[in-house]
Amino acid sequence: MTTDGRIPEELRRGRYLRLTTFRKNGTGVATPVWYAVEGERVYVWTRSDSWKVKRLRNDPRVELAVCDVRGGVPEGAVRVTGTARLVTGEELRHVRKLLSRKYTYQFWLVDWPAMIARLGKRPHTGIVVTL
């Protein structure tokens, strides 16, 4: 487990991230997510009504590890701990921009249909993680 505040290269290059958030009783709940890294921060974009957002409102601790699309972490993978904060507004636009750059058309295939179905509303929240 790394906690020196620097983002490992493995995390910078990964495709999916296992984001572990914590319930009130301390139990960790892991979810594979798309993410982007800029500087020494990790950015995640998620639905505002997701359980991970609710858990982060109670406890900002997170654990991160590179994973596959199903959340499986390779043996020997680097795991880091950090503190998350939820963002909206201009910061959320920045998160969306970073993710659309990394995932290009895949991101738009998810975002645009969801926006159209919700009449232009994007009920999303950004998560910014600092190690």
Rank of each mutant, 00 (worst) to 15 (best):
V73K: 11
V87F: 04
L56N: 14
G89C: 08
S48W: 02
R55A: 10
T104G: 03
T88V: 07
G82V: 05
L64Y: 05
S100W: 00
L98H: 03
C67K: 02
L99P: 01
V66I: 15
L98T: 05
P74V: 05
R61T: 11
T83N: 02
R61N: 14
L92H: 11
E75F: 03
T83W: 05
W45M: 01
G82A: 06
D59S: 14
V62R: 10
T46I: 03
D68W: 04
A84D: 08
V69G: 12
K102V: 00
G72Y: 12
R93Q: 10
L86N: 10
S50G: 10
C67V: 02
C67N: 02
R41G: 07
V87L: 02
L86Y: 09
D49R: 07
G72D: 13
K97Q: 12
E91N: 07
H94Q: 12
K97W: 04
K54H: 13
V87T: 07
D59Y: 11
V53W: 07
K54R: 15
V42F: 09
R41A: 15
R96D: 13
V95A: 12
R57C: 01
V87Y: 03
V66T: 14
R70C: 00
R101Q: 12
L56F: 13
L64E: 04
R96H: 08
V78E: 15
E63S: 14
A84R: 08
E63A: 14
R57H: 04
L86V: 11
W51R: 12
V87D: 04
V53Y: 10
S48R: 13
K52P: 07
H94Y: 13
V69N: 06
G89V: 11
P74Y: 05
V44D: 06
K102A: 00
V80Y: 01
G76P: 08
K54C: 00
Y43C: 12
V62G: 12
R79C: 03
E75I: 04
T83L: 11
T46E: 02
Y103I: 00
S100Y: 00
V69K: 14
R93T: 04
V66K: 10
S50T: 15
P60R: 13
V80S: 10
K102M: 00
R70T: 09
R70H: 13
Y105G: 01
R93H: 05
E40M: 12
R101C: 01
V44A: 06
A65S: 14
L56C: 13
E91M: 04
R41M: 09
V87G: 06
K102G: 01
L99I: 01
V87R: 02
P74K: 12
T81Q: 13
R70M: 07
V44Q: 06
R47P: 01
E40I: 06
R41I: 02
R96T: 10
T104P: 00
R47N: 11
R41D: 10
R85P: 03
G76A: 09
V66S: 04
L98F: 01
V80L: 14
Y105D: 07
L98E: 02
D68E: 05
Y43M: 12
L56W: 13
V95K: 09
V62Q: 09
L86K: 13
T46D: 04
C67L: 02
D49Q: 07
D49Y: 06
A65P: 08
S50A: 15
P60C: 10
G82W: 06
Y103K: 01
L56I: 15
T81K: 09
Y43K: 09
K54S: 09
R70W: 03
W45S: 01
